[in-house]
Amino acid sequence: MRKNFTIEIEKDGKFYIAQCREHSNCFTQGKTIEEAIRNIKEVIELILEVKTPELNVILKKELINTL
Rank of each mutant, 00 (worst) to 15 (best):
T66H: 13
F15N: 07
L67R: 13
E49R: 12
I47C: 14
E54T: 07
I7F: 11
C26V: 02
V43Q: 10
V50P: 10
F5Y: 03
I33L: 07
K51T: 06
I64Q: 15
D12A: 03
F27H: 08
R21G: 01
K3D: 12
I37W: 02
A36E: 07
G30T: 06
K14M: 10
R2N: 15
F5W: 02
T66M: 11
M1T: 12
N39M: 11
P53L: 01
E22H: 06
V43A: 09
P53C: 04
I40W: 04
A18H: 11
N65Q: 15
K11T: 00
M1W: 10
M1R: 09
I33P: 07
V50E: 12
N25E: 11
G30M: 07
R38V: 01
Q29D: 04
I33F: 05
K11C: 02
Y16P: 05
T6E: 14
L46N: 15
Y16C: 04
E54S: 06
Y16T: 02
E54M: 04
L55G: 03
K31N: 03
K60F: 11
G13C: 06
Y16E: 07
A36R: 04
E42P: 05
L46I: 06
E45K: 09
L55V: 01
I7Q: 10
R2W: 14
N25A: 13
R2Q: 13
T6M: 15
K3C: 08
I58G: 00
I40C: 12
V50A: 05
L67A: 09
N25I: 10
K51N: 08
L63R: 05
I44D: 14
L63P: 04
E34C: 04
E42L: 08
T6R: 12
N4K: 11
